[in-house]
């Protein structure tokens, strides 16, 4: 079995080791005897619509704005692309999917408006280890490293990826708790770097399960390096 994965604008949205999510998916797929073709979509190139998984990463302000402009120009293709596939969007990539995000003091850039979230500027910058309890059954606790200034509000009808145990996640307190990211079936968003899939093999397995219609979460966990790292990070942040 072969799956295909597209990294969108790695040159612009790849500041925090985001390529690692693609490498992890490919590595983990191989462990499950699935081969994975990685397609790098460069700025200016057309977004392929037939991939199984799409990745958007984190980037600096200028790069985020440019990536948004390019995605706007390709919005139709992008919507078609993610319709029946899995999308993982981290940090700047998460913000881009929402209604708007800050670009400078009192100035906002419109986002793609594909999910019901919006980002406000915030201070101080949120930097540090973050742990959340994932809403996805079988995925368990998530661990990562957050580093962002924006505060992202998800609508009442939306589901976060996880409820924060340590750190600030989206950075906005609702009913006394903080949440991280956004989740709706095919779309997984988070502020977690690490990269998130390297540090959370169960989340990686969830995305792979959805992309292949196989259930890797039902399988017993291997006591591999990824799982050991996951456990070690959870323990270090208790």
């Amino acid at each position: 079995m072969t799956i295909s994965l597209a990294i969108i604008y790695q040159e612009l949205l790849g500041t925090y080791g985001d390529r690692g999510n693609a490498l992890t998916i490919s590595h983990r797929a191989k462990q499950h005897n699935i081969s994975c073709e990685i397609i790098q979509v460069k700025p200016g190139e057309k977004i392929p619509t037939s991939c199984d998984i799409y990745l958007l990463g984190g980037g600096e302000d200028n790069a985020q704005t440019l990536a948004t402009t390019l995605l706007m120009e390709n919005k139709k293709d992008f919507i078609r692309a993610i319709e029946n596939s899995q999308l993982l969007a981290i940090c700047a990539g998460f913000q881009i999917l929402g209604k708007h995000f800050p670009v400078s003091k009192n100035k906002f850039s419109p986002g793609l408006d594909l999910i019901d979230v919006s980002t406000q500027p915030g201070s101080p910058r949120i930097i540090g280890e973050v742990v959340s309890k994932s809403v996805i059954p079988g995925v368990g606790d998530l661990t990562g490293f957050e580093n962002h200034a924006g505060r992202t509000l998800i609508s009442n009808n939306s589901t976060p990826l996880g409820n924060v145990i340590k750190g600030l996640g989206n950075g906005i307190e609702t009913n006394g708790t903080f949440v991280d990211g956004y989740f709706s079936g095919g779309i997984v968003c988070s502020y977690m770097h690490g990269p998130i899939l390297a540090r959370n093999p169960r989340l990686c397995d969830y995305i792979l399960s959805k992309a292949t219609n196989l259930d890797f979460l039902a399988m017993a966990e291997n006591d591999d390096t990824a799982r050991m790292l996951h456990q070690e990070r959870l323990l270090a942040n208790k």
Binding site: G14, G17, G20, F145, G194, P195, A198
Partner: peptide
Amino acid sequence: GKDPSWLYD
């Protein structure tokens, strides 16, 4: 640096 994500770069 406390975040080793860049190892993937």
